[in-house]
C-alpha cells in the first residue's frame, strides 16, 4: 500500500494537463465548419391514434400493464389492482392531484406520502413500501417510454424501490419519438437533477438469455393511461 498518501488533486491536475495537451496537439487548427453533414433517418409521421397504439403495444411487449382509465376512475382502478396483488399500502408523491386520488382509495388501503428524507429511512423504504404511485411528465410512442422528471415532491426512489409502480400517463402528452421530444421541449436549456425514461418493469436476461422480470427495480409497472 504505497499509494495511500498521494495527493489526488495534484494527480488529477497533472493528468488533466497531459491528456488535454496530447489531444489538442492532434486537433490543432481543425476547421469544424467543414465536418460532413449528418442526415437523420426520416421517420414517417403517425396520427395520434397510431402513436397511442404503438405506445401501448411497446409497453405491453415489455410486460408493462396498461390500463385505460379516467381521472375519476383512477382510485377505483388502483384499489382493484392492489387488492388483486394482496397489497394494502401505497406510497405516493406529495402533490395535489395525487391527494384527491388517495382520498378516494378503498379505505382498507393505507397510504403514505413520501415526505421524508431517504437518509435513515432506507430500511422502511425497502422493506415496508410494497407499491408506489407517481406521475409522469410525458411519454414516447416509438419506444413505449414514460418520462419521469423527479423533484422534491416525487423523489427518484419513489419509482424505483417499491416492487409495484403505478404511473399516471396523460395521452395528450405523448410524443412520437425521443429526438422530437427533446427538440420540442428544448431539454438542453434546463434539466432537473435526474430524468429517467422507463419502458417496462425491471428485467434481466443475464442467466442463459432467459428473461426474468423484477431484477432490482419494480417487478410490475402498471400504467394508468388517461385522456385517451
Amino acid at each position: 500500500m504505497t499509494n495511500t498518501k498521494a495527493d489526488i488533486k495534484a494527480v488529477s491536475n497533472t493528468a488533466r494537463g497531459n491528456i488535454l495537451a496530447k489531444l489538442k496537439a492532434e486537433v490543432n487548427g481543425a476547421d469544424y465548419d467543414k465536418l460532413p453533414k449528418e442526415i437523420p433517418y426520416d421517420y414517417p409521421e403517425f396520427s395520434r391514434e397510431e402513436n397511442l397504439a404503438q405506445f401501448i403495444s411497446e409497453l405491453e411487449k415489455n410486460h408493462a400493464q396498461v390500463i385505460k382509465t379516467t381521472k375519476d376512475n383512477m382510485a377505483e382502478v388502483i384499489s382493484e389492482q392492489l387488492a388483486a396483488l394482496n397489497i394494502t399500502k401505497l406510497l405516493y408523491g406529495d402533490n395535489d392531484a395525487h391527494r384527491e386520488i388517495i382520498n378516494a382509495l378503498n379505505s382498507k388501503i393505507e397510504s403514505q406520502v413520501y415526505d421524508f428524507s431517504i437518509d435513515n429511512n432506507k430500511e422502511m423504504l425497502f422493506n415496508e413500501c410494497p407499491a408506489a404511485l407517481s406521475s409522469s411528465r410525458c411519454s414516447i410512442a416509438a419506444t413505449g417510454s414514460i418520462v419521469l422528471w423527479p423533484d422534491e415532491n416525487e423523489p427518484r426512489s419513489l419509482s424505483l424501490v417499491p416492487p409495484v409502480h403505478f404511473v399516471i400517463v396523460d395521452a395528450n402528452k405523448l410524443h412520437a419519438d425521443f429526438a422530437s421530444l427533446i427538440t420540442a421541449q428544448q431539454w438542453q436549456d434546463k434539466l432537473p437533477t435526474n430524468v429517467v425514461l422507463i419502458s417496462g418493469p425491471s428485467k434481466t436476461a443475464d442467466i442463459q438469455q432467459t428473461l426474468a422480470y423484477g431484477a432490482h427495480g419494480p417487478k410490475a409497472l402498471i400504467v394508468l393511461l388517461i385522456n385517451i
Binding site: 417510454s145 429517467v196 419502458s199 418493469p201
Partner: peptide, 10 residues
C-alpha cells in the same frame, strides 16, 4: 427498441 431504463444524471 430501448432499454428498460435510460437514466440521465445532472
Amino acid at each position: 427498441a430501448i432499454s428498460t431504463y435510460f437514466n440521465m444524471i445532472n
